[in-house]
Amino acid sequence: MTTLDNWLNQAVRGLSKDSAEIVRREIHEHYDAAREAALNGGSGPDQANLMAMKALGDPHVANRQYRKVLLTSSEASVLRQSNAESRMICANSWVRWMMLSTPGTLLLCSVIFLAMHQYNVSRGMLVFGALMAIFFMPPFLPIYTISRGRIYRVIKSIVLIGGVLVLFGWDSRIGLWLASCSFFPIFFNEWKRMMIRRKLPIAQWPRQLYL
């Protein structure tokens, strides 16, 4: 394995397959140009290789910087996974029907239980219905601009915090911990999506990144 390959292997560690391919191509191009310039400047082949490698610097530093701007393998996997979820929800008509009707049904039941003075059941159904609505209905809503996406994300945060407040009342601090632990995969995905939004140009955003 050449020294350049070693350098590249360290520089692309943790990056997604596509990102790693981009890095390999651009560094190869750069290395060839630097080597050619050194050869034209009168250096021998070994000296030219050495100069081109030295100019690239520390691969670990490059890797840290690449991970800030290109998709990592875990981010690419989150993107793939949410693509698959969206396709699954939108492609099956019965899933779509269920996703659209359940929150409404739960909210209706919540009103019925409220009328029957069953406050705790009513509260639980209200929160559950609101959470279902906020998480499952967006694929069917016209959210495909940055401003609409921001509005949706603000509403989502308000519903999440409001849900905990409604469910736990004065014990919300404990409730927030419980919700954080229970919904950890959701929070993890949200955090990853936030990272992906920073890294992908808006023109390349898939629909679910707006959500």
Partner: peptide, 18 residues
């Protein structure tokens, strides 16, 4: 003088920002 391996992450960042 800077290490040229760090040039491309900066270029990608600028590209992401438009």
């Amino acid at each position: 003088d800077f290490k040229e391996g760090t040039l491309y992450p900066a270029l990608h960042k600028l590209e992401n920002e438009g």
